[in-house]
Design a protein around this nucleic acid. Structure first.
Lengths: 234, 234
DNA sequence: CGACCGATTGAAGGTCGTCAAACTACGTGG
DNA sequence: CCACGTAGTTTGACGACCTTCAATCGGTCG
C-alpha cells in the first residue's frame, strides 16, 4: 500500500536521457538540449497494488508517466457509487489535465505493481513552451485517451452483461502477455462495464465453467481468444 | 440535407482575423503574422439537420470548427448497431485525430442547423508547427473531449434508464438557451444512453405526463430543472 | 482457530428488451 | 381536398435478464 522511492538522487537530465523505455514515454522526442531545461526533480517511484497515485482532491503538482504496471481511473457517480472510466498501462500518462490548469479529474489506483516517473507540472509546462517536439507526444497521448474513452462507451457499455465482460477480458488480454492477463476483482469488473458485482461474478464463473478462461492465480488468468470472441457478440 | 457554401471568395487570413466568434474557436490566440501562414482556403459552410459532415471512410482532409449548431458523433458496434459517443456544440472541433495521421474516428451528423469552418488539415499542421499559441487551444479542445467522454460514461451509461435520460436532458438543457433545448429523436436518445428506442420513448412520455418537460415543437422542449434533477438520481 | 474479505450461488422481484399494434404527423399523389 | 403511405412515437403484453437481498464457501491473515 505504500510507495517506495527508487531514485532519490537528483540527476534527472542524465537519467531521462538514458531511460530504457524512452521511446515509449512522453519525452520520446527530446534531445540533449531539451533535457537541460529540466530544473526540478523527476523521481522514479514504485507502487504496489491498491496504492493511490492521486485523488481528485490532491494538490495538482505532478504528472505521471507509466513505466510499467496497470492502473484504474475512477470517477464518482451522483449516487456515490464509482465508475472506472479507463485503465492505464505502459507509456500512458496520468494527469495531463494539469497542463491546462484543471484539477485532477480522477482518483488513480494501482491494480498491478507499477513503476512511474513523477514529473512536476512545471517541468512539462516549461518544456512544452520551448520544444515543439514534446507537443506531438502530448497530442498523441490526449488522442489516445479520447480513443480509449470512446471505445469504452461502444465496447464496454453496450450489449448484454456477459458480452460486455467478454469484451473487457479480450481488451485486458491484449494488454497482458500472450498467455496471462490481469483479471480484476468482480467489483472492479462491474465498475468497468456498468453492472453489479454479482452479475460480473456470474459471468466470470460461467466463462470458467465453459473453459474459456482458466484461473492462474487470484488475479491472473488465461483465455481462449477465439471462443471468447463468440461470447463478445451478444 | 445538402450543404451550402457561404464564402467561396478566398481571403481566409482577413476573414478569420475578423471572425465574430474568434474568441471561441481554435484560432483564438493567433495574431496577424500567424494568419499569413494560411495558404489554403478555409470555407464557411452551412448544413441542415440530417446532413453528414464526414464519415469514417472519407478522405482525411479537413478539420471543422463549429460556429453554430449541434452535431452527433457516431460509432458503430460489433453487432452493427450504433452508439452516439458525444455531441458537439459551438466552439468544438471535429476531426482533431487527423492531426495525428489517424483516419476520421466517427461519422458526424447534423442535429440542428449548423455552420462550420472547414479547415484543410495542412493549414492546421502548418500553424501547429510554427505557432505555440495554437497549441494551447488544441490541447484545450482535446482535454475537453476527454472530459466529455468520461462524463458520458459516468452520467449517461450508469443507473436506471430513466435517470440516464434525465441526466441527458439536463445536459442538453445546458447547451440550449434558457427555456428551450434540443430534444433528440427517441432513437438518438437511446443511442446516447445505451437503451432501446422504446424505453427512451417511455421515459420521455413519462416526463411529459409528469409535467417535467413541455414539448414546444417536434424537436424542442423546455424543462423544469429542479424536478428533473430529482429523476436523475435513481 | 476464528474473523474477515471476496467470490459464488440461490431465490425473488423489477426493469428493460422484444415483438407487435395503434396512433400521429406529414407529405405525396390521386 | 382528401386518401393514402411513410416514418416516428406511443403503448401494451410478455419474457428474459439483471439487480437485489441473502446465504454459503474459500482463502488469508492475525
Amino acid at each position: 500500500m505504500k510507495q517506495r522511492e527508487i531514485d532519490a538522487a537528483w540527476q534527472a537530465p542524465r537519467q531521462c536521457e538514458l531511460c530504457g523505455i524512452r521511446h515509449l514515454v512522453l519525452f520520446a522526442d527530446l534531445d540533449s538540449d531539451d533535457f537541460q531545461l529540466i530544473h526540478k526533480p523527476i523521481d522514479v517511484l514504485s507502487y504496489s497494488a491498491g496504492a493511490v497515485l492521486y485523488r481528485t482532491s490532491d494538490a495538482p503538482e505532478y504528472l505521471f508517466t507509466i513505466r510499467q504496471g496497470l492502473l484504474k481511473l475512477v470517477q464518482y457517480l451522483p449516487n456515490g457509487g464509482q465508475r472506472i472510466v479507463r485503465v492505464l498501462e505502459q507509456g500512458d500518462v496520468a494527469g495531463l489535465e494539469l497542463l491546462l490548469g484543471q484539477p485532477y479529474q480522477h482518483d488513480v489506483v494501482v491494480l498491478e505493481p507499477t513503476d512511474v516517473c513523477r514529473i512536476p507540472v512545471a517541468v512539462v509546462d516549461r518544456l512544452s513552451r520551448d520544444t515543439p517536439r514534446l507537443h506531438r507526444q502530448l497530442l498523441k497521448r490526449w488522442q489516445r485517451a479520447v480513443n480509449e474513452a470512446d471505445a469504452w462507451l461502444t465496447d464496454l457499455s453496450t450489449g448484454s452483461a456477459r458480452s460486455r465482460v467478454a469484451r473487457l477480458l479480450l481488451r485486458l488480454a491484449e494488454i497482458g502477455s500472450a498467455d496471462r492477463f490481469y483479471l480484476p476483482s468482480r467489483e472492479d469488473i462491474g465498475a468497468m462495464v456498468g453492472i453489479t458485482t454479482e452479475t460480473a461474478s456470474r459471468s466470470i464463473a460461467e466463462f470458467k465453467r465453459a473453459g474459456v478462461i482458466r484461473e492462474l492465480d487470484a488475479k491472473h488468468a488465461a483465455l481462449d481468444e477465439f471462443e471468447m470472441k463468440g461470447f463478445s457478440e451478444k
